[in-house]
Design a protein around this nucleic acid. Structure first.
Lengths: 222, 222
DNA sequence: GCAACAAATAACTATTTGGTTACAAGCTAT
DNA sequence: ATAGCTTGTAACCAAATAGTTATTTGTTGC
């Protein structure tokens, strides 16, 4: 950039570059860059150099903070799960009627998936590898139970009130909601191509949102 | 392997190897090996050397028959779509009652997904790349319309008979069926891990099969 | 039977990639 | 102010990787 022509190796001039140190910022920048790179290219396709460049830093820092590519990937994955489960906790689906609670969970899940396609990509990548890295995670044992507990309560109340069928099962209900959201968002590109309809069109997105709520409730209504 | 210590380049001895030529077999072996490699590792993670080795041949043949890695991948993807759509054609979902027809399509789709997880992996990979290769395909324009046409007929008959709601839409019904199957199979590894339940267990698989039929019909029944 | 072509092999190459090393410079406690 | 640790940079390296070349050997039409 400037005209100084140094030749000695690893010799750096810093007069013209105000070097601000900020470990937290650098670490966060690497994590965010890695999230995008892994989400866009998968584990096998992600490039360490690309992550460093996206983060505005270099590979040395990446290895310094995260060890290696695999550990960085695991951090990204864990952070993604923490993100959705944390947002989910603020829902309080038990505050209104059972039907409204289920509808609220369905809407939240759909909208979260739509807003965070990178989370879905990461799940896809992780499943491609049969949860090889997720299984090593020690942070994620407790994270998911809250959802099932709260969902169980709402369903039980609905059954007692006679609005839900007895067979309604919390895990099945969640999987139903997640299925309908995940598939539409994550497979929108091939689906739009083969069926000749743009699934990303706002009208179609709105229709699918209503569809998810309808299907979920129809499947458990007494 | 044998004790001859040749040094001249590209000198090959063949006396001890009965060399059978079979272009069709070689081509098919490459396609099958590539299907597995791409399904297991994605586009970015798949290795050309690995495909050649799996096919029991070498890279030269792979480039000879398919041009390059990307074209080979596209062939694999096209072949996978041809596979499911061909099997689908033999269903004749219009032969029985509308409810039975829909149930039959749901069962078929679920069982096909379960039997061909490599197809789901390929879809996942292709969507990761936003259908970059599928969109270049010229073979696949007509392939998918048959499904929608037949489904439309069954739904229309159901509406006329008063067993399906008027709002039942063919694409939505198919996406519902596909969603419930795709998500369960392709995300079974992360789901089993985070919820501490083995989704691949035969009992759970059977339950989900029944669940898909139940949800699909419940969502369109009048 | 043999010329021309298709199928097959293995070694080779240029580039990319994950990971490391040597070094410079900011930060902080004493 | 300065020693020791942390944050940062760029050059380097060995292994891996997509794609190619030189060569050999079946196969087939005449």
């Amino acid at each position: 950039m400037d005209g100084s022509g140094e030749k000695k190796p690893a010799k750096r001039r810093s007069q013209d570059r105000v070097l601000q140190r900020d470990p937290e910022r650098t670490r966060a920048a690497i994590l965010e860059a890695a999230t995008r790179e892994f989400a866009e290219n998968g584990m096998g396709g992600a490039r360490v150099d690309a992550i460093a460049e996206r983060a505005g830093t270099n590979k040395r820092m990446l290895y310094h903070y995260f060890g290696d590519k695999e550990q960085l990937y695991l951090h990204v994955l864990e952070e993604a799960y923490v993100g959705i489960r944390t947002a989910e906790r603020e829902l309080h689906i038990g505050d209104r009627s059972p039907e409204e609670g289920i509808a609220e969970l369905a809407l939240f899940t759909w909208r979260y998936f739509h807003k965070h396609p990178e989370f879905l990509s990461l799940l896809g990548t992780e499943n491609l590898h049969r949860a090889r890295w997720l299984r090593q995670s020690v942070r994620l044992k407790e994270l998911h139970s809250h959802l099932i507990v709260e969902l169980t309560e709402v369903l039980d109340r609905g059954k007692k009130e006679g609005v839900f069928i007895e067979a309604a099962d919390p895990l099945s209900v969640y999987l139903t909601i997640a299925s309908l959201g995940y598939f539409y968002i994550s497979n929108q590109y091939t689906l739009s191509t083969i069926f000749g309809r743009d699934l990303a069109d706002p009208g179609n997105l709105d229709a699918w949102e209503r569809h998810i709520v309808h299907v979920t409730l129809a499947s458990i209504k007494a």
